[in-house]
Design a protein around this nucleic acid. Structure first.
Lengths: 241, 241
DNA sequence: GTTAATTGGGCTAGTCTCAGACCATTGATG
DNA sequence: CATCAATGGTCTGAGACTAGCCCAATTAAC
């Protein structure tokens, strides 16, 4: 552990790429996290460009790239727009190995650790706060949505449940960080087959997480999230070998 | 809690500002976190520009701005460079109120929540991992550095101790996030007067954090960090009213 | 049908940013 | 005192990015 490890961290690149690349990444995040569901429409270009803080030209280049790659279907005219056509690929060990190869083992481990830390942190903070009835209702709603989900909607609603925890803390920084952490492993998670045993197990763990939060028990919440994420990490490792 | 809260989060601005502004922010982070200590020298412009992924021209503009603002002293010639002249201001309630006014209460609350979540998450993850003797030595070293610190070095070494926890997890994403979280509140922390009672209290809590990590007890680590951070948050609130 | 509103498509002039080259200054070293 | 390596200071031409404008297509509503 180098004395100047902090220097490497703080003086890391200011920008991850050019505006085009970062915009593609961000839109891909919205699509893959299911923030804009399959069949859903992105906001109009003019509005989206303002939100993303970039010019319409750059945004259009990004949309064009995603359209060419098959993620979006762009239609002109009134009631037109950029519609999401992406559907997560069928779980497949080959896909997974490719995805892992693309990012590298070190980066994978980094991403998993990152996700574990921020999601546990979020759950713990939320459990430590006094929840309003509305907040409880939101979390309970997301959980029941997930439990009643069709197989094709499962990933999206699972993401929704997990991100709700960060959202309910009221911290936009934490929410953005959890979304970022999740998107870094979403391709991997999509490659895991959804066996009924695993889904049942996950449902129990989701229930435990929600219960700990409702009970206002930060340690139980932390532990429940940690167990849940360790579980998926274990599935990943098993599926890789 | 709007259904499209996630849309707001994911489709947030791609860039926080132009290259110049982001570079100033990053350098300021290095300075205020004490990554480059007072009297220390920034890396040469050519090298730093490459590390930050920006052009030398843009970097020089940022350095010029920080030099004009009194943070840096730039000297030409061999053995020259940009030297840090910044020393944290004396703790002062006026400063604190100004700093809070600059960022706003909502943002302050967001930053404190964020920091609580990520630092607890980091400590928990580290406690859950099997530490090598080298890792234990690093953490113990940082703790004893802090305990033997002169008053003028206290903040810097406190930062070093806290960031070490994230660093030791081996996750660069988590390290960068903790550094970011800390820098968002560093001006506030600097405004809190360093009373002996508080320092003693902090030393006990630091000890508890390290012990929990050494003992491999994630819950104790989480709890110790939470108590410590809640303590400084309480000092902040008290000092504000 | 015609209309009007909404949306994507495209152009241009100007600004920001970059890569690379060259100049100026400093101070340790011989 | 002369040298020279390391460093900041400066310029230029090219490419990326932006703001603002107008055009083209589509379709609900009349």
């Amino acid at each position: 552990m180098d004395e100047s490890a902090r220097l490497m961290t703080v003086l890391r690149p200011v920008r991850a790429g050019n505006a085009f690349e970062e915009t593609v990444e961000r839109l891909l995040q919205a699509i893959k996290l299911g923030v804009v569901p399959p069949g859903g429409k992105l906001p109009p270009e003019r509005e989206l460009a303002v939100r993303l803080g970039i010019s319409r030209v750059t945004l259009r280049e990004a949309i064009r790239a995603l359209s060419d790659a098959g993620y979006l279907d762009v239609r002109r005219g009134r009631y037109g727009g950029a519609f999401v056509t992406y559907v997560p690929p069928e779980p497949d060990a080959g896909e997974l190995r490719q995805a892992v190869a693309r990012m590298g083992m070190a980066e994978l481990s980094d991403a998993l650790t990152f996700r574990l830390a921020v999601e546990c942190g979020a759950a713990q903070v939320l459990a430590a706060s006094a929840l309003t009835p509305e907040q409880r209702a939101v979390l309970a709603g997301r959980l029941s949505d997930l439990n009643g989900a069709a197989l094709e909607d499962y990933r999206r609603l699972d993401t929704a449940f997990h991100l709700s925890i960060a959202e309910l803390t009221g911290s936009t920084l934490l929410t953005a960080t959890c979304a970022d952490a999740r998107s870094r492993v979403s391709d991997l998670l999509n490659a895991i087959p959804m066996l009924q045993v695993n889904l049942d197990h996950a449902a129990t763990q989701h229930r435990a997480i929600a219960d700990a939060i409702f009970a206002g028990d930060p340690d139980a919440a932390r532990q429940a999230v940690a167990e849940h994420l360790e579980g998926t990490a274990a599935l990943l490792r098993a599926f890789l070998s």
